[in-house]
Nucleic acid binder design. Structure first.
Lengths: 253, 253
DNA sequence: TATACACATTAACGTAACGTCAATGTCAAT
DNA sequence: ATTGACATTGACGTTACGTTAATGTGTATA
């Protein structure tokens, strides 16, 4: 039986390019060339190809395969053993690489955590300082020196997890407020939910809660330009909406 | 501090070609080019090179390294983890290869042993048949049917090791005979050594020994053209020399 | 019979990370 | 002026094909 290059390539599952390359490097020549210059292969060539593919599977390079299949009485077993040793060496190398990459990842993560922690501490400190500068007086007047000190202490002792929770809660307040604002009804479900989330936030932030302080604070959000702009940023009127919602919320308590 | 390409290459332990290549692919450009077109590197470039080499040690390719060191806030840890997984996959692949090569070696060795054993059995059978055809009658006359049967049985049950020993011993007889023949003295040390080796050979071959049979056998070597030619092949007269040596040897017993 | 389509060919470039020339220019010391 | 160490660019080689281009062949169909 004779085969064209396509036939063999499909039989063996290799590309025709591969077969031409094998012809080129002399590892597998076609049985003959027909009058049009086409490569024609026979059964024998199929057998040789199978052998080549077998050794290729074992990761031999084509030069070695050529030696193995072309030299009669070539010491195949010796070649296999040598290849085996090379593979062991390769594995050893990869094991070392894996160990080093592991080590590197560990170190980088540790350092990253430390840098994060550092940044977190710095961030907290800066936030308190900023707050002092901006609202120190008002807050002190409203809640007294003691409350401010206690709040700052609590803030500095906050763990990162708590910090993240606080942040998340703050975002949730904003999100819910946005949705609630669309309803236009501070007394509605969403409006009251916003007020409740805000209460939670205050509790986390100040470590204490009173409906009066809550109502006063949100009133301040409206009166003070700096707070108002924070809430009104996306939807003007949000600060007033929040105040109204909280007023209704606190009156129900 | 400024460095020429040679200086940096020696500092970092890489070739100048490597540095030129790194310049070419844009992973490490020199700080400046001087008026003669020489590459001039600074401290910063040394740091970058160290980084490159570090990742190169971990088997990153230069494209990845380029990304890592050139993109600010590139997710290094993620890259490391991905690389780590690739290494694990590579190890997995090598483990499979190692297993398959092991299996192949095992099979090839087993088949080789079997083929050897087969050939060995075939060889023994053929040897006995040949002997029967050539010398069957004479030997039967000399030693009787029983002895021949016993001998053949022993021969067929011979292990390969024994077979090798026998072969070796046979060669040693020939070698020693060759040396002894040069002395021209069958009664001399070498001549008697030859006789003694020949006795051992007979014992192994026939499982039995008698000085008379020994002397008779060597006489036959001389009388029978077919045996004589085997011994006289290289040095004519060797068969007679052996007979004489053995005669002296057996008379001393 | 012209055409369309599958299949064939050779030739060439591209891949990754340099090693290794070759041809040629520069610097410092003698 | 010469020598020797050092610099430059340019180009090929390495492995096992993939991919593309330009072109020829075989066969079925309109």
């Amino acid at each position: 039986m004779e085969y064209t290059i396509k036939a063999i390539s499909q039989l063996a599952g290799v590309s025709t390019r591969t077969l031409r390359y094998y012809d080129e490097i002399g590892i597998l020549k076609p049985a003959r060339i027909n009058s049009s210059g086409y490569r024609i292969y026979g059964e024998k060539e199929i057998d040789i190809l199978q052998q080549i593919l077998f050794y290729r599977e074992l990761d031999f390079n084509l030069d070695s395969i050529k030696e193995i299949i072309q030299s009669p009485n070539f010491d195949e077993i010796n070649a296999l053993k040598q290849h085996y040793n090379e593979l062991l060496a390769k594995r050893q190398r990869i094991d070392t690489l894996i160990y080093n990459v592991e080590k590197t990842i560990f170190n980088k993560e540790r350092r990253l955590k430390m840098r994060d922690e550092e940044k977190f501490q710095g961030f907290k400190k800066k936030l308190i300082e900023d707050n002092e500068k901006k609202y120190g007086e008002e807050v002190r007047e409203e809640y007294g020196e003691e409350a401010v000190k206690r709040s700052n202490e609590q803030f500095m002792n906050m763990t990162k997890q708590q910090y993240n929770e606080l942040n998340e809660l703050g975002n949730k307040v904003l999100e819910t407020l946005k949705e609630a604002y669309k309803t236009g009804n501070p007394a509605g479900e969403l409006g009251q939910k916003t007020a409740d989330l805000h209460r939670k936030w205050i509790t986390l932030c100040w470590g204490d809660y009173s409906p009066e302080a809550h109502a006063n604070l949100t009133q301040m959000y409206v009166d003070d330009e700096r707070f108002r702009s924070y809430y009104d940023k996306e939807q003007p009127g949000s600060a007033e909406f929040l105040r109204d919602a909280v007023k209704i919320y606190t009156e129900k308590i």
